[in-house]
């Protein structure tokens, strides 16, 4: 199975072509300004080098893409690109979470739980438990200074792993800090293959936002439409009608 893997969820853009677990071509670039622009060119470039390495012209079987948690801008840039490629090639677009992509290339000893910690800025983190099959994908949002208990033996991955590990260790939790920080094209492709083979629970190829949009309804209620009755015009039964009062004056 040949998979194009795309990621722009965290601090880097990555694209790679993976055939049955072997990396044919890949590229990674730190996120600067305009990562949305860079990823398409990177995808074209890895596809071209993968095709150049092949003696056959076998096409892609799927596009795999990280759906988050992470930066909305990067997630949407990668997902929209993936959907465009999927449409044009008539191949499935398979969403994988950052935690699933990291877990795919990590071996955690028995008795330890792998959590992926992702910086969501302003002192908050997203925490994703590996192997979760709950509808929310096992992702919770938490303030760094109010982390929930994650279990007795916690292995940590993700871009906020070090910070979370320090906090948990200070509370006496047994912590193992892994080296996995950013999703790799290989990890993304392996997780996607697992999803395709139903070894991971189904997931929509749409962003994993965790939080609803940060918007508030207008503070002041809008003016009622023209001609609608005023609240004080509700007349109690038996009271004289307003018009008759006005007419008497």
């Amino acid at each position: 199975m040949r998979i194009l893997a795309l990621d722009a969820a965290l601090g880097a853009c990555a694209a790679g072509v993976i055939a049955d677990g072997a990396v044919l071509a890949q590229a990674t670039r730190p996120v600067g300004q305009g990562q949305a622009g860079a990823l398409a060119a990177m995808a074209a470039s890895v596809l071209a080098s993968a095709e150049a390495r092949e003696t056959t012209t076998a096409g892609l079987d799927a596009v795999a893409v990280t759906v988050g948690p992470g930066t909305f801008t990067g997630i949407r840039a990668a997902l929209a690109l993936a959907h465009g490629i999927g449409l044009a090639r008539a191949i499935p677009v398979i969403g994988v979470s950052v935690g699933e992509a990291l877990a795919a290339t990590l071996a955690v000893p028995d008795g330890w739980t792998l959590w992926t910690a992702i910086d969501s800025r302003r002192g908050r983190v997203f925490l994703e438990r590996a192997g979760s099959t709950t509808p929310d994908g096992g992702v919770i949002a938490a303030a760094l200074d109010a982390l929930p208990a994650l279990g007795p033996n916690v292995a940590l991955a993700g871009d906020a792993a070090a910070t979370v590990a320090a906090s948990l260790a200070a509370r006496g939790t047994e912590v193992m800090l892994t080296a996995a920080r950013l999703p790799s094209p290989l990890g993304i492709a392996l997780a996607a293959a697992a999803r395709q083979a139903s070894r991971l629970a189904p997931r929509e190829a749409q962003p994993l936002y965790v939080d609803p949009p940060a918007v508030k309804l207008p503070a002041t209620p809008p003016r009622p439409p023209p001609g609608s009755p005023a609240p004080d015009s509700v007349v109690p039964p038996g009271a004289p009608a307003r018009d008759s009062v006005a007419a008497s004056g």
């Binding site: 074209a44 990668a78 490629i85 090639r89």
Partner: peptide, 19 residues
Amino acid sequence: LIGGLIVGSQMGKGIALAA
């Protein structure tokens, strides 16, 4: 709006590069 521009342009690029 940048969020929408990213979605539309990226999808267009994806189709263009894949086809």
